[in-house]
Design a protein around this nucleic acid. Structure first.
Lengths: 213, 213
DNA sequence: ACGTGTGAACCGATTCACAGCA
DNA sequence: TGCTGTGAATCGGTTCACACGT
C-alpha cells in the first residue's frame, strides 16, 4: 500500500472520477460490488481499477468485493469531493453562460461563486444564481474568498493576458477553454478543453479508415 | 519514412492540430521556421515535433527548417482540414447553443449543417445560421447528407439512447459532452469532453500540493 | 555550424499472472 | 471457488544521441 504521497499516475487521477460516477449508479442496488461490476460500463479493465486503488490503500475484501458506500466515501476523500470547492468563471460569452448553468459540477461539489466579464451590459446580471462582476474586481474577490481555481472562457486573443492576471491574483489552477497554449508560472496548473481539436481528432481517425471495420 | 498507414500514436494525431495552429501564427513572419520555433509556445519538445512528422514523411530541409506554407498544406492534408467536414449537433440546450456559435470549428474546416432537438419551441428556429430540426428527422438528414460525425449535447439520461440512434443512422464518430461512457458498436468512434471531470482533476492536483511550489 | 530525421535507450503505464484471503 | 492486491512482464510513447544533408 504505497501511500508515499507522490507518483500517482496522471491517468489514475483522471479515472478516479469515473469510478465515483459508476459507484453512484450502483448505489441503490446492493451493499457490495466487484471490480468487474464497477468497471462494467467504463471501458476500463477491472485490473486497472484495482491497480488504481492500490495507490491509495486497500479498500476491498478479498473474495467478496467492495462496499459501495464505503468506497464512495474513500474516493471522495481522495479526490476532495467531500468538501465544497469554490471556483470562479471568467468570460460570460455563450460558452461561459452555458457553463454557469451546467449541472454536472454539482456531482463533484464544485461551486461557481462568481463570474467576471468586461461587458457593461452583463455586469450586475445574475445568471443561474451567479452574479456577473466587473473584471476589475477579480483580484479583490479572488483574494477575499481565497479562490484557487478558475474557468477561463474568454476569446482566444484575450486568454493569455487574462490567465496571467488570474495567476497574479493567486489562482493556482485554470480550466482553459481558449484554443491556445497558456504560458504561466509553473506553480499554476492548466488543463485545456479544446472542442475543435477534439473534433479534428475524430476527423483524422475517420480519414484513416480506422472505422471502416 | 514509415508511411505504413497504421500505427500512428494517438497522441501524435492530437498534436498535429496544435502544430497547424502554431504554423498559422507564424505564417506572416517568414517563409521558413525551425522545429524549435514552431513548438516554442506549445509545451512540446522539438524532437517530439520532428518525430511526429516522421510518421508521415520528410517535410523539412536539413540545416534549414520547414517552409511554413508547405508544411501547413501537408498537415492540412494529413488531418483532412483541406476539405470541409460537415457535422450535425444533437441537443440544443445551453451547451448546444454555445457550440452552434463557437467560432473555433472554422479553423479546421468543420461545418455544422443541422441541429436536432425535441423541444417544439426550438424546432424551426435558426441559431448562428443553423436550423434546428425535429429529432425525428435525424435519420433522413444524416443519410441524405451522408454525415459521419455528430456532437452530442443532450442531458446525461438521454445520451446513451441518442448515441445508439446516431450509430444506427450511420454516424461513425461522436463527440460526446454527456458525463457518461457511451457503449456503442466498435466501428463507431467516441471522444468525450467532460468538463466536470476535468475540473475535478485540477482539484485533485491542488489537493496533493503539486503546486505549493 | 545548424537543423532535420531516426534507431536505440529509456520511462511510465497497462496488462499479466499469481499469491493471499474469504 | 471467487475476488482482491500486487510484483513482473510487456507495451507504447518520449527522449536521447547521432548520422546526414546544407
Amino acid at each position: 500500500m504505497p501511500r508515499d504521497s507522490f507518483a500517482i499516475p496522471q491517468e489514475t487521477a483522471r479515472r478516479l472520477s469515473l469510478y465515483l460516477r459508476s459507484l453512484k449508479r450502483l448505489e441503490q442496488q446492493q451493499g457490495v460490488a466487484s471490480s468487474r461490476e464497477i468497471t462494467r460500463f467504463l471501458n476500463i479493465s477491472s485490473e486497472q481499477f484495482r491497480k488504481d486503488l492500490s495507490y491509495f490503500g486497500e479498500f476491498g475484501r478479498r473474495g467478496i468485493g467492495y462496499d459501495i458506500e464505503i468506497l464512495k466515501k474513500e474516493i471522495g476523500k481522495i479526490l476532495g469531493t467531500n468538501v465544497v470547492w469554490r471556483i470562479v468563471l471568467v468570460g460570460v460569452g455563450k460558452l461561459g453562460f452555458a457553463l454557469l448553468g451546467y449541472p454536472g459540477f454539482l456531482e463533484f461539489n464544485l461551486q461557481i461563486i462568481a463570474a467576471f466579464d468586461n461587458d457593461k451590459n452583463k455586469i450586475g446580471q445574475v445568471l443561474s444564481g451567479v452574479k456577473i462582476l466587473n473584471t476589475l474586481r477579480m483580484r479583490e474577490v479572488i483574494k477575499k474568498e481565497a479562490i484557487k481555481i478558475a474557468m477561463l472562457c474568454v476569446p482566444v486573443d484575450a486568454a493569455q493576458d487574462m490567465a496571467g492576471d488570474l495567476a497574479r491574483c493567486g489562482i493556482k489552477a485554470i480550466l482553459n477553454f481558449a484554443p491556445v497554449n497558456l504560458v504561466l508560472p509553473k506553480n499554476v496548473c492548466v488543463s485545456n478543453v479544446d472542442m475543435a481539436s477534439e473534433l479534428e481528432g475524430l476527423v483524422f481517425q475517420l480519414k484513416r479508415g480506422f472505422f471502416n471495420h
